[in-house]
Amino acid sequence: MAAVALSKPSTAKATRSGKWSPWLFALPALVVYVAFLVYPAVSSLWFSLTDWDGLSATYNFVGLDNYFKLPTDPVVLTAVRNNVIWTVVTIAVPTVIGLGLAIALNGKVHGKPILRLIFYTPAVLPLVSIASIWGWLYNPQYGAINSFLRLIGLDGLAQPWLGQDSTALWAVMVPAIWLRTGFPMLLYLAALQGIPNELYEAATVDGASRWQQFWHVTMPSLRPAHYIVLALSLIDSFKVFDMIYAMTYGGPGTATQVMGTWMYANVFQYYQAGYGTAIAVVITVVAVAVGIPYVRSQTREAS
């Protein structure tokens, strides 16, 4: 008893310090998070309610005017449509190709490490380099794509790919798919390697075909990977800016504008920082709304 009584104060002290120690460990990250994310986000929210030009020292509070202007801006409508097309295509295609490559590379394939490297390399190349390379490939007169089409007698298919509204957005999506396929491939490959062989052996014993094994063993086992791939790709796709900016600058005209590039144009080029920031807030809200299910699923798993 005496021993217990003696140890009481030190236990309470330890409990108190134990209560704070997680916060102490989290503090450096929290400080960085508040300084570089929360504070700029709150500032942006405020500026979206003003008519600030982005350069002057003064501005006026205009309430929700900038948000009310959004639906009447024809470029915003184009940008939203382009964002939706971009999101659907650049998620669906790389995910399907990435899954296919992962399954192929998970089997008995010669030169697996080299193939993985080849498929993932585009993901680590600088985006501006990718944009320049593909810009040259698409050159209507001297580019490799049109030259190849002419070489095989398909002259009629040779197009000014980046120079017309009808093809420009699709032409930018091709390199985006090319560079984004490596990421789902790696995630799926890691997930595939975690599926126990016993499941396939049992399925084989039960007489399941390869196709049935894929749908009833592989796909359900990949569910967590699907979730990560889809959530991260969705956020990434909605934030698209760099590829469009570097390859078409939002053109021809405004044909390839997306919300990110239109926000940039307003904030940095048209001196309409208030309006541009309102666009940024909308992008953020949508991205956060999309990200919430992912974060919740992660939290649920952790707990």
């Binding site: 400080v31 960085v32 508040v34 300084a35 504070y39 709150v42 500032s43 405020w46 003003t50 600030w52 002057s56 020292a57 003064t58 501005y59 006026n60 509070f61 205009v62």
Partner: peptide, 27 residues
């Protein structure tokens, strides 16, 4: 319509951040 200065806003929010004990990073 109220006029504001950008510096004023930044100053106010900085002060708020300071009040919250975060002066080291934002002030």
């Amino acid at each position: 319509m109220n006029s504001y200065t950008r510096r004023g806003f930044l100053g106010l929010t900085s002060a708020a951040a300071l009040g919250a004990g975060l002066s080291a990073c934002t002030g």
